[in-house]
Design a binder for these strands. Structure first.
Lengths: 176, 176
DNA sequence: GCGAAACTCTCGATCGTCTAGATATTCTGG
DNA sequence: CCAGAATATCTAGACGATCGAGAGTTTCGC
């Protein structure tokens, strides 16, 4: 991927900037996927597994462990697929299932040592690179970047919800 | 996904900023995937198909149409998978195969009307949102954001190449 | 307590992806 | 030119991740 800033006017400096930022952001997302894909493959799992592992760690580090149901929502996965996914990761020793003591219908996912090791191996080099990039920016500049990323994120999630709720009326769809 | 800024110190304002920007960027990539997934699903194709369609359009709009081989590299896909992918998209009327007249081993991929329509339907609303977000930023601020995204992109691609070339020596890997 | 709701898991089917190898075209050197 | 190597795509069979429907538990409201 790389376009989308391509279907725009680029006459003024500002229009060029808008187009280039959009394109760079898009490229970044694609390349990030590739990094995940490659890293996961080298450790005997697939991209979804890695994403899941990270989600489990995130949740636990935040203080409230994730359940299979919420993990499925997070990954856009059906319940049966989530079970298979967790089975894989549990079998590989990356995480384990715990029953929620307060609501015993639920299962809480906790990362195990191998999972933590893997996630660290993924993030540490990335974090080091990120830190190095950011040394070229002043505090004020990082404030701008932060404001930008936050606004873009909010906008994108609004859009996501819009797209998802459009499922009801697919308008004029030809199936042929 | 969402962490990675989580394994950091967040004592000073600057450290907080670094962590938050990193986290937002990561969230953005995940949410972007979800938008693609949802949009693709509503139009009878999967995320890979949509990515491929976009890559084909990008290439053709840049003036040099992509080949199955290069598309496979771009999507991290084996040659057999690419053939199946192109078959799907061609059957659905989203693109077509053209033989390269100068090298008849090659196939050039061109988007068809339905493909263009689809890609536009994907990008237009996104672009409108992006434009709206950017109106809150001055030209100088956008310069900063652009510089940041470019630097992050370069760093990430370096990292990607590093990860990919690490295939040779997986060091101490337990397979159990 | 009983029925409805919430959450996870099971099972069979489908579809995307991989690997290995076949086919077609181009390039190189003699 | 012709043979062999290199490049590019496609074919075929197998595998595995995902889906969908439904079963099995546990919890909540009345």
């Amino acid at each position: 991927m790389a376009a989308h800033g391509m279907y725009r006017r680029r006459d003024t400096r500002r229009e060029l900037l808008v187009a280039e930022i959009t394109a760079e952001l898009r490229r970044y997302c694609v390349d990030a996927q590739h990094v995940g894909h490659a890293f996961a493959g080298q450790h005997g799992l697939n991209a979804t597994d890695l994403q899941a592992l990270i989600a489990v760690m995130d949740a636990e580090l935040h203080g409230d462990p994730i359940t299979p149901g919420r993990l499925g929502e997070h990954l856009d996965l059906a319940s049966g697929s989530v079970t298979a996914l967790i089975d894989r990761l549990e079998r590989a020793g990356h995480l384990r299932r715990d029953r929620d003591p307060t609501d015993r219908r639920k299962v809480l996912l906790r990362y195990a040592d191998r999972g933590a090791e893997l996630a660290m191996g993924f993030f540490r080099p990335l974090g080091e690179r990120t830190d190095r990039v950011m040394t070229d920016f002043s505090d004020e500049e990082l404030e701008v970047v932060y404001r930008f990323m936050t606004a873009m994120g909010v906008s994108l999630r609004e859009h996501r919800d819009e797209v998802r709720s459009a499922r009801a009326e697919p308008s004029r769809r030809r199936v042929d």
